[in-house]
Write a protein that binds this DNA or RNA. Sequence first.
DNA 1: AATTTAACCAATTCGCATATGATTTCCCTT
DNA 2: AAGGGAAATCATATGCGAATTGGTTAAATT
Lengths: 230, 230
Amino acid sequence: MEDPGNGGHAALVQLQAYLAQMDHAGETRLPAERELSESLGVSRGDLRKALAVLEKDGRIWRHVGRGTFVGSGPVEETIGISEIAGRTNPADVMRARLIIEPEIAREAALHATLSDIASMRQSLVQTREAVTWRQYENIDNLLHRQIAQASRNNVLLGLFDVLNAVRRTVVWGRLRSEGARPPADHHSFGDHERIVEAIAERDLGGAAAAMRLHLQQVERRLIPVREAAE
Amino acid sequence: MEDPGNGGHAALVQLQAYLAQMDHAGETRLPAERELSESLGVSRGDLRKALAVLEKDGRIWRHVGRGTFVGSGPVEETIGISEIAGRTNPADVMRARLIIEPEIAREAALHATLSDIASMRQSLVQTREAVTWRQYENIDNLLHRQIAQASRNNVLLGLFDVLNAVRRTVVWGRLRSEGARPPADHHSFGDHERIVEAIAERDLGGAAAAMRLHLQQVERRLIPVREAAE
DNA sequence: AATTTAACCAATTCGCATATGATTTCCCTT
DNA sequence: AAGGGAAATCATATGCGAATTGGTTAAATT
């Protein structure tokens, strides 16, 4: 019916024109294939061929149930926590913390407000007052997050949250077995205080170094054996 | 009705017993408050008091519409890209790249395999052969990701992917306006080569420094005005 | 007077209807 | 008989309303 013999080339031309017009209007999603084929006066088969060409060229992006979009596709939302945690191990998580968190601490030393520092110091006190291991862990988590928040950079804070969620996923089931032991060891207290102190004094390198040292201590404690021999 | 005067202590005891039994069974979610209060034979008010105690102690986790869970809460899957991108700006994204990516490059210099380096060098060549800006961007993205992959740490790679997705979300619509201009400038080519070279030579500090320099160049180009005066 | 009970609110999940791109089948034209 | 288009079908994703659930407030009961 539709001027056969052109091999669908007319459809491609019309589609490109439509796309340019739409691109100019700022729209990113184009109508459904059924509507568009009728609107452009071409068969759906030809339209799909033209769409396939544009997709292979990277100009559009299609997905079942969602629609067809211009550009490099709808942002890939599917980098979820479990996706990362599923193909890694505690050692890599610890290594990543050792790489990322000192730099975050350095940035915190540069941008922390007085309110941030006050909150951290309050957490320091609460850390010492914890009577349960779980309580201690919660406050420890909070303190580390407060440091990330003190960077005053929501991207860094978001990355920290992702890293933290991955960590809690990967090592899940390891801490639970230790039960309700109180935190009798005092090594982390000093570490935390040194970090906060360096941030308060705007000592960028000192904050990074203190955080690195602290995480190395934590890493050492994660190694199962040898603790007695030390 | 329920033996008044105990101040809800009986509810706490019963709840702890119930929690222990459930914990042993491996379940993580406990029934709704209305059911549980009837099941345990205590008023909802007393049950909520007991739940509040356990929550403050960190043993359970409650959330409206979801339910009550044992442990440190259901793994927070909802740190999605849009959640981060929604409350930030291009400057913070650039700053985060400037902080994170050099450290990733340093790690890559330490762990990259020969295969990794070969892939990167191939991307270098392809970068120079790109005839479209979109093509160039794609290969540039690929190269940066290859560097993250060369760290041989899936957590770092995942964090890079998140950061990259946030970047593409935040700056979306800015690059599109420049249309189909071919990449006539050559400054990034040298940057990229220096980074890959440093990684190949296992020069940790050099790789980080080269990456930092490269990103600073990119940041400079993102500033809208002043480009002609340079 | 105090606590239980019920009612209501806000946030979340669940199920079903709808929308969409992919695929197959059928039918008409030539 | 063959080719191509139109319709039917499938698999996946979204939207919306009902039901669920923790949090809060008011009424009722003892």
